[in-house]
Design a protein around this nucleic acid. Structure first.
Lengths: 346, 346
DNA sequence: CAAGCATCAGATAACGATGTCATGTTTTCA
DNA sequence: TGAAAACATGACATCGTTATCTGATGCTTG
């Protein structure tokens, strides 16, 4: 018994067939008699034969590798997205590679190019904050590899995407506060380059206008999607002569910061201040009071992204044909918890 | 101009050298004149040549792939560990593959084996809850691949590990409460199979004994390391005729649940109830009051793990020689925040 | 019954790198 | 100064698959 890992040649020899026949069996190709097929399969099982992906990749055009590219800070749900992708890809024999890239760095192109070209990637999944990074996308497009962007900011010609309607969602949240009677509603934006920042802000503005109000720059702050970044924002808002009675934070982490500052000042929540977040990450339920927020259907987004790619990849690829694409908008919904209430009487 | 990706042959032709010489330049081998080396490098840059990893992997024994294997639920810091590994591996040309495996499933062996054997992995990083899974580890050891376990429960002969002293850390936390004057201290354990569960519990018990107390089964609960799992545990503890004045939760998520239940019952925190967590994940600072906890030096753990592997991998591998190993215990420290105080007078 | 076709199977050439070995040139140093 | 050592290069086999031929069978079909 050799100690080496068995190769297709060992299988062929043991099964009394040619290597090509074994290959045919492995890939479920035609022109193998049922009898031969079964014999080969039995031998493969006996030898615990496992095809070498490097060899398959070298010869064929598939690497069975799909990369998830994101940046720091990734969305708070980066991990969950990965889990979702993983479970879908696993059954199809694909493996997930993760790559964090510094989208501000000058080696972005080089990094992505190395990834895509050296590893012969089969596909790429992009999440925040690189969903709309032209450098990254152009490298991927040049390599003619299918890709999906998860919750991108803009539509694009090439590639696929999955998302919810962020503008409508922010609109819904703000309407919820307006319906409670709030009229002075603060807003904490996300960072400039992040997908979603603009859309969430404009949903907020639209809602105000539907009630005949104009966004007031005095109660609009710019955060960075992190807990820490929202602390000073909140402090300023709550120190105003006429502080807001409610605050819309562009994500849950920042909303948690709003809660902490409010607690620290001894405000009664939600009576003195209503707070809403965005995304419905686990944290939203773990803070006090639990956050009213918009649920990102993360599992569904990941599923949809994986499904789109698997569809594209299992379809036989014609040489000239451009990569097929799909765009999917999933339903969102507002989750009402205890961080929102009508404003207290003055 | 061909549209194909350039290969080593194209480079050789353009530089007027043999493919072997180009290979030498790529791998910084000896026996290439400075002049030739420079010429080849110029051509490589011009053609934007990038070596095909599949080919390198097929011929050589390196795949440049390292896998991070974990299970659901992974530690709350799975994502951060990955980020840490990523930045270290990136510069060395390694890529990180992630694999979530169901450690309860019956296909564990198959899954890990496929991963390790088909992809020719160079190394594996294991985190909770598979750091101590014998099935997984034995497959990896059989393939003779170096691996590092991050915060494992037990020491092992093979492989490397990085960790903090969890027992001592839990001991420190409990001592902190005892020093405040608490004598009735509840404990919420982690799930049975998880690394850390046993060590944290025994650290708690040791601390009590140092004060001449015996652990009281009535105020010891079993949770699952998740927020939800700790809710009923806490409810029971707080409903006792003689409820604890402090609760040690085995991780921060469960501590957050303790806080929520306490808030819900109108308790004043930390006066009526002191709470401590474990891990110091981001959440610890985002809840109210912020949690006293033990900091897992995640960045340092990831760094150490990556460093160990890189060391092993860059060392020339001798055929017969077993994989080298290293064990590192990093310092921990208790982070005191506002969730702990002396017990209120009755 | 020869020709045509679908089916089954194998020999052999790729894929793109690295390893082995051979060969010629230059340096070293006893 | 002569032999050994170090340097510089290239031809060619090789890794484990898949793809392209080519050949051999049996079965229709006119």
């Amino acid at each position: 018994m050799s100690d080496r890992k068995p190769t297709i040649i060992d299988v062929a020899r043991a099964a009394g067939a040619s290597i090509k026949t074994v290959s045919r069996v492995m890939n479920n190709e035609r022109y193998v008699s049922a009898e031969t097929r079964e014999r080969v399969q039995r031998v493969m099982a006996e030898l615990q034969f496992q095809p070498n992906k490097s060899a398959q990749s070298l010869k064929g055009d598939k690497s069975y590798l799909i990369a998830h590219v994101y940046g720091d800070p990734g969305g708070p749900y980066t991990g969950q997205i990965q889990m979702g992708l993983l479970t879908r890809f696993r059954d199809q024999g694909y493996h997930l590679l993760i790559e964090e890239i510094d989208y501000r760095g000058d080696d972005v192109e080089d990094r992505v190019s190395k990834l895509v070209n050296q590893l012969n990637l089969d596909a790429v999944v992009l999440t925040a904050p690189v969903t709309d990074n032209d450098t990254v996308i152009s490298v991927i497009e040049r390599a003619n590899i299918p890709y999906v962007r998860v919750t991108p900011q803009h539509e694009r010609d090439g590639g696929s995407s999955v998302r919810i309607d962020e503008r409508a969602a922010a609109n819904d949240l703000t309407m919820h506060l307006l319906a409670f009677g709030h009229r002075r509603i603060g807003f904490i934006k996300g960072p400039e380059h992040h997908a979603g920042t603009r859309l969430r802000y404009s949903g907020y503005c639209d809602a105000l206008r539907e009630y005949g109000l104009e966004p007031d720059p005095e109660i609009i702050e710019q955060g960075g999607f992190t807990y820490r970044s929202a602390l000073p924002c909140t402090r300023r808002l709550l120190s105003l002569a006429e502080p807001p009675t409610a605050i819309v934070a562009s994500n849950d982490e920042m909303a948690a910061a709003v809660l902490s500052v409010a607690h620290d000042r001894g405000l009664s929540l939600p009576g003195d201040l209503s707070v809403v977040g965005f995304d419905d990450i686990e944290l939203a339920e773990m803070v006090w009071p639990p956050l009213t927020t918009v649920k990102q259907p993360i599992q569904e987004l990941a599923d949809a992204a994986a499904e789109i790619l698997v569809n594209i990849l299992t379809r036989k690829k014609q040489p000239g044909e451009p990569a097929p694409q799909a765009h999917r908008v999933l339903p969102h919904h507002v989750v009402i918890r205890r961080s929102t209430a009508p404003p207290a009487r003055r």
